[in-house]
Design a binder for these strands. Structure first.
Lengths: 146, 146
DNA sequence: CTTGACCCTGGAGCTAGCTCTAGGGTTTAT
DNA sequence: ATAAACCCTAGAGCTAGCTCCAGGGTCAAG
């Protein structure tokens, strides 16, 4: 099949396919007389592999490594594959942890601010960012300082 | 103070400061006769503001917006500031959600694979990526198919 | 008076994953 | 026969946030 048919199957762009080729992820198994890329069913399945790996978070570099295994399965063990999955899981855990730190810090800022129509001159969020102290929610009975 | 002193205070690079200047985040309040950037205490505090905002996850673009408020507090309300914080919180929650979807999908792959010294020809992870079906953990009594 | 640390500008390069442009050839339908 | 739709290559451009380089000026110590 030509590139246009291939991309219709998966909803990706022609440019993306050509980019993947440059990245050594997927090459057409043949060319037409006019130089058009021709993809076999195996090529199409390979694209499916790439897109599914992408959909679980693997980078193109990591997918390249997975394809190395896929292309020569007999030379590898289950452990090799599982390792890559577990490494990625750890990687993602770390990213989540960083985002959760951001979230916690933002939540503290958020709680310290009344969010009302008061002038921002008194806003606890700005104060905290200026001074580098964690925002202090009001502890006494007056209204929020924000 | 000159740029070198400023960067020592915060542990950032000279290039970063000059980059922030190009990005309209921080300009030196004066220049020496020789053209050296000279930073006031207010400038230094502004850098602190920028770095703290960065440390809670704001992008430079978002920090630019925060600085617009910071530079003219009287013209803004607490609600304006709090909105930005809450938007960022939502943004981060979405990023976390996406990462957690990746994580769940990877965990399923992980569970389906024995991870042992068996040849990857039978690996359930590769099979799942080839076929686009969720990896099926073994349900019967034989050892994992992986 | 020279050495080394510091500062300047302008612009290129880096990562990741595309996306787009220019300029052209091919195929298909009417 | 011609127009639309498709395909090709090479290379530039995009986002984000720096980082580095070339080539040169300034400043303080010994």
């Amino acid at each position: 099949m030509k590139i246009g048919e291939l991309v219709k199957q998966y909803g990706v762009s022609v440019d993306t396919i050509r980019f993947y080729e440059k990245q050594q992820l997927l090459s057409p198994s043949a060319r037409s007389d006019a130089g058009y890329r021709l993809y076999s069913n195996a090529d199409s399945q390979r694209l499916g592999f790439i897109l599914r790996a992408k959909s679980v978070g693997f980078s193109l570099q990591q997918i390249r490594e997975l394809l190395l295994i896929e292309d020569n399965k007999a030379a590898w063990q289950c452990a090799d594959v599982k390792d890559k999955v577990q490494l990625k899981m750890q990687d993602i855990r770390q990213q989540i942890a960083e985002l959760e730190q951001f979230y916690q810090a933002l939540a503290k800022l958020d709680q310290a601010c009344c969010g009302g129509a008061l002038s921002a001159t008194e806003c606890s969020i700005l104060t905290a960012l200026e001074q580098g102290k964690p925002a202090q929610p009001e502890t006494h009975q007056e209204e929020a300082s924000c």
